[in-house]
């Protein structure tokens, strides 16, 4: 083998065992098992409709907001089942942040967007909020661009800035995991590059799972890559390996653009 094996030193943050997901009668995901390591970036790739976004949303149970869903199997975070382990989905979502496909800032000021999360949990004094907001905006590499216009509406920002604001907003409640659902699909290449750099910095103390349809992006930002096809996991491995020596023919075909 060409690539030396890197012994993984980071613990497992999220662990999925034999998980299946259905909307009513329609089965979307089936027989999924995989592990996601802390402080690593795990990319999920696959053709559209393969269930990768659905899978991502299972980690913070945001599906349940709009429709009745059925999840079977185990999905563990730090060894505790997030569906049956007595975890409340509201608590879970605080711990598992999410960045969506389209930037979705609230129609409020930049400051209020970031302060929204902390306020939910009763943080109301100005100095703590100021501190949290600045910290989150710095982490999202947005502070220098917006520090003089925190009171301006977030909807007036560029798409890339809006998406970084959404990242800052998610970081402000101190999540352990950050889910990113094709975060760059609505952005131009320069804004995309900024987000990708940011992902590299954020993984220092976050577990990041990113769904992307862009294979170059997966190769650039992720440590692990999982390839989904028709609601099943075809292969998961170190990103380098997936992109150089995949074990399954189908993975290779997909990566080299023969289908999908």
């Amino acid at each position: 083998m060409l690539i030396p094996t890197v012994p993984e030193t980071k613990p497992i943050k999220l662990s999925v065992r034999n998980m299946a997901f259905s909307y009513g009668e329609k089965k979307v995901l089936d027989g999924l098992s995989l592990d996601i390591h802390a402080e690593r970036v795990t990319a999920i790739i696959g053709p559209s409709g393969c269930g990768k976004s659905t899978f991502l949303k299972c980690f913070n149970r945001i599906h349940e907001v709009s429709s009745a869903v059925n999840v079977s199997g185990d999905m563990l975070m730090d060894g505790v089942d997030i569906y049956r382990g007595g975890i409340d989905e509201v608590d879970l979502r605080r711990r598992v942040g999410m960045v969506f496909q389209k930037p979705n800032p609230f129609p409020k000021s930049i400051y209020e967007n970031v302060a929204f999360g902390p306020r939910l949990f009763g943080v109301s004094d100005r100095t703590s909020l100021d501190g949290i907001v600045e910290d989150a905006l710095r982490k999202a590499a947005l502070w220098d661009e917006v520090k003089d216009r925190l009171k301006e509406s977030a909807t007036g920002m560029s798409g890339g800035q809006q998406q970084r604001l959404c990242i800052a907003r998610a970081l402000a409640v101190n999540p352990e995991v950050l889910l990113m659902d094709e975060p760059c699909s609505a952005l131009d290449p320069i804004a995309t590059a900024k987000i990708e750099d940011l992902i590299g910095e954020l993984k220092e103390n976050l577990t990041i799972v990113i769904v992307t349809h862009n294979m170059q992006q997966a190769a650039r930002v992720s440590d692990y890559t999982a390839f989904f096809w028709l609601g099943k996991l075809v292969e998961m491995d170190l990103t380098e390996r997936i992109f150089t020596t995949p074990r399954v023919q189908m993975t290779e075909d997909y990566i080299t653009g023969r289908f999908g």
Partner: peptide, 27 residues
Amino acid sequence: AHPAGIQPGGSRKADPMPDVLETSLTA
């Protein structure tokens, strides 16, 4: 090289995947 796979409830069965994919279930 997981330090240790998490084994929730030891009764877990083999993942029901189609034959083609069987060999790849190594994640």
